[in-house]
Design a protein around this nucleic acid. Structure first.
Length: 291
DNA sequence: ATTGTACTCTGGTACCGGCT
DNA sequence: AGCCGGTACCAGAGTACAAT
């Protein structure tokens, strides 16, 4: 089994993450306001110079944590909430059960893409946390042991906070029920393709309205996931969006979808047949587009 | 020079098993 | 049961350095 490297999610408390995310959302593209809003969540104990707080809390802690979790995109002045981040914030205002499922789905995918803890833990029965940490410690490479353990602890805590894992009577174990639910929630074969297509075309036409038909896929993702959530109460994360889009025919007698390549290094590109794309263009062949 | 990441350090708490 | 020392945890603060 090849060893992987895992990042440190320094701000690992989900409630705090959500508050920070709201700051990012509220003040999109305004770095100073975002910073001010986030720093206000951390009560200064000994009135450190604000420069230091900026460095260690905002820049050194909150931003990297949210980025690793895929909840924000962009750098510098263009930091903003991602579709997954928005899914979390929007669902919170809707219904707590749905919100919990969204959190689990998003975190489950972070684990699937980066940490790979769940697959490992799935095979084990319940263990004291320390044993699990030791086992995981051998699985990952990179920094000194102490650091590795800290990283493992923090992500395990996140898994626990979203209830993918149980922590009872000194033992850690996978929460099978919630886990199975998460699997279902991220399974694209459970989604209604027609609903997705309708959302997709609606989002495309809205996003490309003023841009000569060219739409950023990042923007469509966001619109579609929020639309699916609000209208159909269905969870479509960014990963799922991509999978659903890949499963959609790109050429029919009604329309042709073509993809545009990125100009530089960019985040959250859409992977299609081995290449990465940033924009999308739809040419319709007949009057209107049916769903 | 600014921004982002990796890592270390710190002073305080919480929790542990063993000893008397 | 009460204390004792060790270890882990906590919430940042700070530093070094890489990337752009």
């Amino acid at each position: 089994m090849n060893k992987t490297d895992v990042p440190l999610i320094k701000e690992y408390r989900i409630n705090r993450q959500k508050k920070c995310l709201k700051c990012i959302y509220k003040y999109a593209f305004d770095r100073d306001k975002q910073k001010e809003c986030i720093l206000s969540l951390y009560h200064n104990r000994k009135e450190r110079s604000s420069e230091h707080r900026e460095k260690s809390i905002f820049r050194g802690m909150v931003i990297p944590s949210l980025r690793y979790l895929g909840l924000i995109v962009g750098y510098g002045d263009s930091i903003r909430i991602s579709a997954n981040g928005k899914l979390i914030i929007e669902s919170e205002a809707m219904n707590s059960k749905l919100h919990e499922r969204v959190l689990r789905a998003v975190i489950y995918e972070v684990d699937k893409n980066i940490f790979h803890f769940i697959d490992f833990i799935k095979g084990l029965s319940s263990f004291p946390p320390r044993e699990i940490i030791n086992k995981l410690c051998n699985k990952i490479s990179g920094p000194p042991d102490k650091q590795k353990r800290e990283r493992i602890r923090k992500f395990l805590s996140i898994l626990e906070q979203v209830k993918l894992m149980n922590h009872s009577s000194q033992k850690l174990s996978l929460n099978k029920k919630k886990y199975n639910q998460a699997i279902k929630d991220v399974d694209v074969s459970m989604k209604n393709i027609e609903d997705f297509k309708k959302c997709f075309f609606d989002a495309y036409f809205e996003v490309s309205k003023n841009t000569a038909g060219i739409a950023d896929i990042v923007d469509i993702r966001e619109k579609v996931s929020i639309q699916m959530l609000k209208e159909y109460k269905v969870i479509v994360t960014e990963d799922q969006f991509d999978e659903l889009l890949r499963g959609t025919p790109f050429e029919t007698e009604k329309y042709i979808i073509s993809l545009g390549e990125p100009m530089g290094a960019e985040e959250k590109l859409f992977k299609y047949k081995g290449d990465y794309f940033r924009t999308l263009y739809i040419k319709t062949r007949k009057m209107g587009v049916t769903k």
